[in-house]
Simulated assay, not measured.
Amino acid sequence: MNQLQEFREKNGIIIAAHRGTNGGNILQNTSKAYYNAIRHKADMFEVDVVRSQDGDFFAFHDGQEPLVFNDNFDIRTLNAKEITSKTCFNSVHEPINQKIETIEQILDTFEGQVFINIDRSWFYWDTFLDKLKGYKSLEQILLKSPVERHLLEKLRDSGLDVMYMPIVKTMEELDLVLNFKGLNIVAIELIFETLDTDLVSPKTIQLLKNKGLLIWGNALTLSDTIVLSAGLDDDSAIENDGQSWGRLVKLGFDIIQTDWPYLLYSYLTANNLKNN
């Protein structure tokens, strides 16, 4: 049993904070957002990855440039110096002194403290996997990617010993990862638009449980049109006293990613689904 599974056994449902907990004067994907998430009872936070033109890795979700920098450009076309010189803007579009941070800065800051889910790094696995090998606390990292055979092979062949979670959207993808050898698969992220899909059927959920795999669900609400968990999301939970979170738990999900970790924590503890 790995550390993440042990944590689940001991502490109940695992709370993952989407890009940390941001808002007000706190920027997403920054140390302040991650500290904030921990103080809001998150057990894990998500870190997005981009690579600069000169090969440095930053905690940022490309596409968010207009929101964070109040400017329309592609951060991946800039070098590291240009990225760190950019003025950032808070949630009410006021310029602030905070800057985008490197992945190395984030990992060093939170070494040994909390589980870290690394997202969107697979675009850069030609250099990122070797970079990650130098991190001292790999046991706290949960790496993820879509289910594409070339990605699975690249991670396997890299020799990187890290917990891995594939992002599964179809039964065919699930079959591929369950039969793929040489990876430390500890969890499965399920993306599903409806509840009548085989992906979240009792049979499939029990299959994953029998294999000792944790199941990750996304309660975060990205937009009114993007569906990650058949409408069992944060918006619905806020409107209906957490019932959608409860339905995810009843379906068998072990990890819930949210933008509102303390609200989720309060719901889980009130319903004896999480230890204080």
Rank of each mutant, 00 (worst) to 15 (best):
Y262E: 15
Y35V: 10
H150R: 06
D254N: 15
Y124C: 13
W122Q: 10
L214S: 09
T269A: 09
L190V: 05
L151T: 07
V92W: 14
T109K: 08
I188D: 00
H40M: 08
W245V: 11
I100V: 14
D48A: 14
T127S: 10
V227H: 15
I26K: 01
K81M: 15
I238K: 15
L143P: 04
N272G: 08
M165D: 06
R8Y: 04
I116A: 02
Q64A: 15
F253D: 01
I167G: 09
I255W: 00
R51G: 07
T84I: 14
W260G: 10
Q105V: 09
D54R: 09
I118P: 00
R247L: 12
A16V: 04
F253G: 00
D71S: 12
Q140H: 15
D254C: 02
S91K: 14
K41A: 11
I215N: 01
D74W: 02
H18N: 02
D234G: 07
E94C: 14
F89S: 03
L273Q: 03
R149L: 12
T87M: 13
E46W: 00
H40G: 09
L213N: 08
L207A: 02
P66R: 04
T102L: 05
I75M: 03
N97T: 10
A59S: 07
L178H: 04
F192Q: 00
T30G: 05
S52G: 08
T204F: 01
D234L: 05
M163T: 01
K32P: 04
Q113K: 11
Q3G: 10
Y34P: 07
